[in-house]
Simulated scan of single mutants.
Amino acid sequence: MTAATTVANFFKKILTELYQNIYQLLGGSLDDQTLSLANIGLSVLRTSIKIVILLVLIGFIYWLLVYVVKTLRKLFGLSHRYARIARAILRYLWFMTSLLAFMSQIGLQADTVKATAKAATWAGFYYALWAASGQMVSRVLKHYELNASIEQLLKNLLLVLILALAFATVMAKFGFDVISIVAGLGIAGLAVGWASQSTLANFIAGIVILVEQSFQVGDWIRLGDKEGRVVKISLRATQILDRDNIIIIIPNSSVASSEVVNLTSKKMIRFEVTTRIGLHADITTARSAIIKTLQKDEVVLKHPAPLATVAEIGESGIRLVVRFWVAPLSVARIPVIKENINEKIKRALDEAGVEVPFPHMKLLLDNPKLGSEQ
């Protein structure tokens, strides 16, 4: 026997076995040894017609129930939310009934169909539980005025928990050993957790940051030598946007263990600049010129009013501290604001005739008369 004949017989045997399996699936018997294409075609046609009739009947019932829901909503003025929930339930029942009808007609065992029905029922129950828990979390967080990041975190945790329970329940309905699966997943989880301790630490720190709400997205914070606006708080890291339009990503474990200064936690923030006037200059005139200048500035708040006080009287002049308040939205531009205020103060003092000294040294030399000649 040649190699080509051997290969041909091999594939012929595979096709014959496949043909017999399909024939048995369609309800035929190999005992009568009548594997005719006509019989198989008729069997396929009969099965297809039954499936189509069942699907059309189920679809008609589904359409009728949806129509009833719409009519009841119009008659009794039901909320659109409840009508949407009812349509979602009907859609799920229509899909699962169609699937079970199809499975029952293609020759699957009754135990498989029953297990699928039970699994579908439990899956629907867990989906309803997830939807209800999401609404409950939203209401609770809204009552306590917690931010959207915590809401999304809790919803994600609930989703993972419900998915795990649903997976275990569905697998149990199909005869799988759920305890062994859970044990295996637990061991794998411990191994992964041990290998990624830093990631776990960042995850826990992210939860602490979201729960404590020491700062939120949009706040301007200072963290060590880093300063910027918070643009994202994830479970792994916090992202801030600095004044140079650069995103800085800081691990949550570092944020939780460092001193964080929130510059926008209140409705206004105070800053200060310093200036000097001469020792013989009139302090009242200088203060009046500085205050008038700050009151004309659009960024500086009128209440509380800006102040100019004497901080030090030194050898080269009098140092004044000028304090002013700005709104949180102006914090990102505070270096430019200070520079502009310094420039305006210099011009105001010049216009008021107030001397602005600079460090200098004056040498006084005596010129004694020369002694008498010897």
Rank of each mutant, 00 (worst) to 15 (best):
P328F: 03
I40G: 11
E145A: 13
H280N: 07
A164W: 14
A348D: 03
G77C: 03
F10C: 14
L108I: 06
R91P: 08
G193C: 08
D111R: 07
I58V: 14
T71I: 15
Y144D: 05
Y126K: 04
T5A: 12
R81V: 11
I290C: 01
I61T: 12
P306W: 00
L57W: 04
A86I: 05
K292I: 04
H360D: 06
R236A: 10
Q152E: 15
I291Y: 00
K50G: 11
I341K: 02
I246F: 14
F358Q: 15
F125L: 13
K346G: 14
A281S: 02
G134H: 10
E312C: 10
G124N: 03
R229E: 13
K118L: 09
V326E: 00
S257N: 09
I337W: 01
D282N: 06
N39F: 12
A191P: 06
N156T: 15
E212P: 09
T264R: 02
F60L: 13
V160C: 12
I106L: 01
G206K: 01
K296T: 10
G224T: 02
K12S: 14
S149N: 13
M361G: 11
V255R: 08
G186K: 07
S316F: 11
P335E: 03
L307H: 04
I181E: 03
L108M: 08
T275Q: 02
W122H: 09
L18R: 14
A8G: 10
Q216T: 15
S254N: 15
V300S: 05
A205G: 05
L90G: 00
E17F: 14
A237V: 12
